[in-house]
Design a protein around this nucleic acid. Structure first.
Lengths: 344, 344
DNA sequence: ATGGTTTTTGACATCGATGTCAAATCCGCG
DNA sequence: CGCGGATTTGACATCGATGTCAAAAACCAT
């Protein structure tokens, strides 16, 4: 099977390659009848431009990079899918690059994709969107980049986020509204800025309701199911336990839920459990877990839009380069009204 | 930041670009001292070859495609990760392409990545590795491709698989060994050939043990957690129920497990439940689910090796192009010895 | 030294598209 | 009909590497 080149199309259509190029790229200055004729020939020969030749001469690669810490997580999968679909719509391609900051030499891989692949833009997922050394690499190479849920919003980076603080507040208000006063909180990892904002939202809501946060009910996890199990154990082992637990993500909430079940606590009557993310794990349990729906795929898609949008590419400090997407509180079976313990 | 080209390196080293190219690509016919000198300059200038220029002139793209049905699944994540890591080791890049056979026009995307991106090879995940129209596209374009766990093993395709039949047999033998005689089976989707082999393995083991399969305990699911819930309900609603259930994958096993818990059945005393895959879901429950560890990442990595290996690239019918990787039975808490029901 | 090999090296064309810019064509109008 | 200005078109150089192949250098034995 021989490859069809732009010359073949040009010859067949009786025009120059340059004109065919104009048609392909939807540029102006082509007479309608010629444009149409060329398009017909393109379809007829099933011509597909060679992406490498195009990139080489135009110095645009039509490639975006997705830089991500843990590419096996469900979070990563959702983000990647959102980005992938949008890339396809805009006829870009996506290259996924795992970045393990704890492994020396990680910079090399990043530099390599920037330099070898001439990425047109980069999407940087949490938590590594908060690593200044990483951001610096993109800045130095003048590669447009969008951070997902970063802690700060650097001037010359794009950013896409949700309102973690507000969402956590809503969730806490919801629990308080159910009558809960002794609320446990399972924190996320310290390097994950969104999880810190969630904790702040939780504390803000508690403060507003004039309820003291009981620090013995606040424990730090690492977003893993396993840490949810362990912290659930720690929080539920004695008779002095919270009536509701708010975990910073769904995997940990699921861990707490499983612990509760193991200890024969009835959810939600003995204990309400809520999470954050609307991950698959929040539905893979009984009862299903009340959570915050985080628009992961939408955030990734928005990041693609920002990067591909030419006005952003010209000037990174674009008005739409800092976006906030809406979330939603999803009430399911794991949360319910506070039921007084006998003895209270 | 200007880009460093091969000419810059050549000039600085006092040799021709071609010689630098030889050094970069590790070719022969360069005097050791020159090679070394060039390497020093390369490091000094931090030169990175332009992937597009290289591909354009060499007609190798250093790109592999991963074609996958449902890129959001945990299965996809594991496969992708395995492939990604190996690609990186071999300085290839990976492009992930979702393929939705039910959506008209899917061929176009596939053709596009073949023609535009000049993929050096393709990895095709189940279940779409069994779609002849898809395979045909690669064959026509003479793109080397490796199928993961396909039903057949076409002559001019590579294949990487595990012994689904044997593994299912082992699992069934294990259950029989525990004393179970009434064993339910939750089938996977009909278009997923591995799940069919699993069922055959199950039936073979039952036949060998001279135990009749009770067809009312055999139900078809679609690999989703939800279908596990529904079929669990169907299998466990009455007093006439199996003492063990073998689900074709872990998500469905988890669904069955949750149903059992909802119906106050004690696992594993009242009911043993086993799955297949060793997915995250098999550990995200209590008790954890006994399962078959499927070497997903290893299979993907092996696929990369096959595609990158030059002897395979020359002739697709390569001796090592059909691989079988080992699995393992992972016994966890969801399975245990048959306990006679009162009334038996 | 000399001729014959073998190894190393570089000049030059090439991959397939797009950017630049000048030439060709079109248009309306005096 | 011919002219100026706007629009359309294509010739040619270019992007940055590698393949080809012949020239140059090194090596070896006589």
């Amino acid at each position: 099977m021989k490859t069809v080149t732009i010359k073949d199309v040009a010859a067949r259509a009786g025009v120059s390659p340059k004109t065919v190029s104009r048609v392909i790229n939807g540029e102006d200055h082509v007479r309608p009848e010629i444009r149409e004729a060329v398009q017909r020939i393109v379809a007829e020969l099933d011509y597909r431009p060679n992406a490498f030749a195009r990139s080489l001469s135009s110095s645009r690669s039509y490639l975006l990079g997705l830089f991500i810490d843990d590419p096996v997580s469900g979070y990563a999968a959702d983000v990647q899918h959102g980005a992938l679909i949008r890339c396809r719509e805009r006829s870009y391609h996506l290259v996924v690059e795992p970045v393990d900051l704890s492994r020396p030499g990680w910079q090399d891989h990043v530099r390599d994709s920037i330099a070898s692949l001439r990425l047109d833009g980069a999407i940087i997922a949490p938590p590594i969107c908060d690593a200044p050394e990483l951001i610096a690499l993109f800045r130095q190479a003048a590669v447009p980049h969008v951070l997902m849920a970063p802690s700060a919003e650097p001037e010359d980076s794009g950013a896409v986020r949700m309102d973690d603080h507000g969402a956590a507040r809503e969730m806490t208000d919801y629990l308080i509204g159910l009558g809960h006063r002794h609320i446990g909180f399972v924190q996320g990892p310290v390097n994950h800025s969104a999880s810190i904002r969630r904790e702040e939202g939780f504390r803000a809501a508690m403060a507003t309701a004039a309820i003291a946060v009981e620090e013995r009910f606040v424990r730090r996890g690492d977003f893993s199911f396993r840490s949810g199990l362990e912290l659930g154990e720690a929080l539920l082992c004695g008779p002095d336990r919270p009536s509701a637990i708010f975990a910073c993500n769904d995997d940990m909430a699921l861990g707490v839920l499983i612990t509760a079940i193991k200890r024969d606590l009835h959810v939600p009557d003995d204990l309400s459990i809520v999470g954050f993310d609307d991950a698959a794990s929040s539905r893979a349990a009984w009862p299903q877990i009340t959570t915050i729906r985080q628009p992961k795929a939408e955030m990734a898609a928005a990041a693609v839009d920002i990067l591909v949008d030419p006005s952003f590419r010209k000037k990174i400090a674009h008005p739409d380069a800092h976006l906030m997407l809406p979330h939603a509180l999803v009430v399911r079976g794991s949360s319910g009204p506070m039921v007084p313990k006998k003895g209270d």
